[in-house]
Computed example of a mutant assay.
Amino acid sequence: MIREIAYKIVLLLFSIIILASASFAQSSKYLPNKPGKWTYYSNIKSPGTEVAAFNKNLAVLAEWFHLNVPILTNPKGFDVLTTSFGIWDDKYKLQACNYGLRSELNFDFQLFLSDLARGGKWVIEPPHYSFYINNTETGHGTNSNFLGWDNTKDPQSLEAAMDKAAAGLNDLFRIFPLVRDIAPGVKLYGDGNLIVFNPNRPPFWIPVTVKEIMEVKLAYYKVKHEIDSINYEKMLASWAKMNFNPDPEHTMRPQLYQMIKQEFENFTTEELNSPAYSDASDENGISSINAQGNGRAVVRFNPDCWDRSLPVTAVQFMSLQYRPATEQERDEFKPRNKGLEDFVGKFFNKLPVGKMGILIDKK
């Protein structure tokens, strides 16, 4: 049921893109039989030998898809523009679990059109698909995004403490249940999350206990409480200069830390040592954490998953949204989208996922 709903969302988004992209079907005919070509381009242009080595590895990875997915090998009705993008983030580097350089590999299906006034090809927001390389924040669909220190308003004295606390909390995330092991080094989780990894390394995700996540939450909200309290006092001082003195009983003083602290203290010793689950319901309070198995398991990315004897430019972890289309879904797609085929669905259906383990660099 979840898969069907998710796939319908993909169809809806694809339909919106089609309608929003100059309504080409009303003024230009699609040319499905015109032979196309494959092009690869790297958008990672930073200087240095490290980036050059990473680009070389990404080009090899892209070429594997070119040679092993028929819709990319012999495109018809469109050109395939494949582009690699770098993902750089100083905050990301603060997390102990991160090692490899990150990238996104994107496939644009640039449909041929009869309208030469439009360039004869759909190049602006065409149907496309992308996936991630060496990105520990993907593959589960439940990214944490707790903000670190804000240089526009937070005290500089708490910069290091806030960034450290946020990095610790962003290390943790929820995962969908395992659907099946497709092949050594290839696992499929719920909601179409496909993970490609080195099966000879330790597990890429490791469980977190209730005690662990509650301590991390408390560490974060304790620093945040300090910052919010300082900013709150600044706000009161600013109001006082304007002769505005609200009733203290009706002002919202920071109190989130105390609420989570109370929830922590309410757990029994047995619960604190149990695997943590997250479920946003009233009974789980502000923290959403429980030890009863309700919701999704809370895990962290395992730093030991990386083979650190390999350079950071090596491809060691890949995460994809994998949603092969059923025959019925393919049949329904075409009339809904003015005669266009479901190129992304065809990509999934022909993707040899069982062979993808060879794409991971190993010693």
Rank of each mutant, 00 (worst) to 15 (best):
F317V: 03
F14R: 14
Y41F: 15
Q328T: 10
A325M: 03
I175N: 01
N55I: 05
E332C: 01
A325D: 10
P199M: 01
Q258D: 14
A161K: 09
K164V: 10
F112N: 02
P202R: 09
L72R: 04
T136V: 12
I18W: 07
D79W: 07
F204M: 12
P47L: 06
V216K: 15
L12I: 09
I358D: 12
G120S: 04
N98C: 08
S46P: 06
I358R: 13
P184R: 05
V223C: 05
E125L: 14
L72H: 05
L172V: 02
D108I: 00
S287F: 07
N74Q: 07
A166E: 08
Y40W: 15
P127H: 01
N151P: 02
D181I: 02
I9G: 01
R336E: 15
E233S: 12
G354F: 01
V344I: 01
R201C: 11
S274K: 04
C97W: 08
P70E: 07
G345F: 06
P303A: 08
Y322R: 03
T209W: 03
P335R: 01
K355M: 11
I5Q: 09
K187P: 00
F176G: 02
Y99Q: 03
S103P: 07
G345Y: 03
F333G: 02
N135A: 12
N135V: 04
V298A: 11
E50W: 01
A53H: 07
S130I: 03
A280L: 07
L81C: 09
P184H: 04
P75Q: 10
V210D: 12
R323G: 10
M1R: 07
K121N: 11
M356G: 08
Q110S: 07
